[in-house]
């Protein structure tokens, strides 16, 4: 299973984290069933270190995401697992 934590803190929310949830919903069913989705409050990464919205996938942080980038990232990650 792939664990995805999406930050829903103020800045990530303002910079589009909710659209990332929709991106996950649009993924093919076989990938969706392998995902555990969680929401998180601030990862404390956005203060100069990373650009919101920030997402954590299996312990690794990714930033500056949009729906297209997010989908691509998950598909790549799911491919690595196979």
């Amino acid at each position: 299973m792939m664990e995805i934590k999406i930050c829903v803190g103020t800045t990530c929310h303002l910079l589009g984290s909710s659209s990332l949830v929709e991106a996950i919903n649009e993924l093919p069913e076989e990938i969706k069933t392998k995902i555990t989705l969680k929401y998180s409050t601030c990862f404390d990464k956005c203060q100069q270190e990373m650009v919101p919205p920030v997402v954590n996938i299996d312990g690794e942080f990714f930033d500056d995401l949009n729906p297209a980038k997010m989908k691509q990232l998950i598909i790549e990650k799911a491919g690595e697992d196979h």
């Binding site: 829903v8 803190g9 103020t10 929310h13 909710s18 929401y39 998180s40 409050t41």
Partner: peptide, 18 residues
């Protein structure tokens, strides 16, 4: 631990509460 309600509010007006 904080449990965030797994439901985005409609229109994404506000982030979810927990």
């Amino acid at each position: 631990e904080l449990e965030i309600q797994f439901r985005m509010t409609r229109g994404n007006d506000l982030p979810p509460y927990g």
